[in-house]
Nucleic acid binder design. Structure first.
Lengths: 125, 125
DNA sequence: AATGATTTTAGGAATCAATCCTAAAAGGGG
DNA sequence: CCCCTTTTAGGATTGATTCCTAAAATCATT
């Protein structure tokens, strides 16, 4: 475990925020200014591969990273992109797997809304 | 409705395939060789905005487009990326909305598996 | 702690999907 | 056909991410 990887992991593990690679890069550079962007991406990839963190692909926006290891749905603000974890509903995959007769390997469920902060800031007519 | 947009729409409407912009571009150019890539992207965006088609953001892969207008889950092959439509389960959003007390505007549910074709082609060990 | 093999890093170039820019072409309605 | 608005082709640009390479760090062994 290199210092770089530990630092990147710590940033993700320290808070429930679902940060982008760029945000993680900025936070990490505050402590290790020589850190390269490529190192952040590579280590995020390795941490994901090893199951230590989870990658969240966002619609029309950079990916975000989640310290929560187990699969669960996410509540995503359509306006600002903020992501919240939701509790995993029981039997979601099982229901579909049974209905289709297929073996599922995972799922990705995003629920979209407009968060209170964004609802405040006028939007249409 | 320009000829370009009609052509792009027809390609999507004609088959249940969930194609990428590049695939649509290639198919369209077979009929209209002067068609520009930017025109494809712009028209896909407009068709999505007008609710005529749906955009599917894929993990680590270009977006795909779905002729199905109503929200429904997708079954995605982890290996080749092929996408199939699944029937919409009743009350999926309602359940979450009620549990969280939030107003949801939409959802995106992807179920991952390895399709039969890819299961055949050796993978590990 | 020195040695040598292996892995990782910094830094920047490269890639790739997608967007933006601009002058020319196409609509479109009177 | 004429004027006005929208769209297009084609190419440049962007932005997230990946790739490349020589230098630095790590690691196991002594």
């Amino acid at each position: 475990m290199t210092r770089q990887r530990q630092l990147i992991y710590n940033i993700i593990a320290a808070a429930p925020e679902h940060r982008t690679a760029e945000e993680i890069y900025d936070l990490a550079r505050a402590e290790m200014p020589s850190l390269a962007r490529g190192t952040v991406y590579r280590n995020l990839g390795l941490l994901v591969r090893d199951g230590e963190i989870r990658k969240l692909e966002m619609a029309d926006a950079p990916a975000r990273y989640d310290r929560e290891r187990s699969p669960h749905p996410h509540l995503v603000c359509q306006v600002c992109g903020r992501v919240e974890d939701l509790p995993a509903p029981d039997g979601l995959m099982e229901g579909f797997a049974a209905a289709r007769g297929v073996a599922l390997t995972g799922y990705d469920l995003k629920l979209y809304h407009v968060c209170p902060a964004c609802r405040g800031k006028r939007h249409g007519a």
